[in-house]
Amino acid sequence: MGNISIIVRLKSPDPAAMTAMSTFRRIYPEMCPDSLQRYDYWCFMNPRQGRETINGIVSRYHDIVNPNKQTWSFINESGDSDDRSDDSMVWIDVRVTDRIDSVSENWTAILRRSNSEVDGVLCSVLWRFGFAPGVSSDNARNKVLELTVSTYRDHGLLANPVSQKIDLPAPLKI
């Protein structure tokens, strides 16, 4: 057994991503990415029947994935999504997770109570920054950190490190 993660996105353009982009354009015109995508990121710990368990949870709980307005896909062991691929840009991903999170705690309790065969759930937000080809990965990572981590009023936007953990996983192939 291991952990299995899924990403969930809106079928329509994500309003939070649009607002983030317009804010970046205003406060960081030189560093602004060419694309910004936002996903809910759910990590299910030790599902007993692997993907079958997750399929069951997702189809049962529309608070996790609302099929009317959201789509989802698995992230496989190599960090790729089953969704679709786009290699034309330089992608840097950032995962933002609340250090203390009632949502994860309560979903863990709900799923344990309903005998859904997972040890726990961890909810995060995944932001995907896309830069036009020609930007080095290091340069792109530095820009992403600058844009993400809110340390001063005029520095960073997407995560407050006082209450949130920020990590840069290997970029997914979505």
Binding site: D98, R99, I100, D101, S102, V103, E105, N106, A109, S150, T151, Y152, R153, D154, N160, V162, S163, Q164
Partner: peptide, 28 residues
Amino acid sequence: VESGMVPGWEKGRIESALAANHISGRSG
């Protein structure tokens, strides 16, 4: 808080957060 105006120990620095409520058994 997000402006760094409180607690404001260092000018403009974001030194606190107003995070999601943490109550056993409920969220939101």
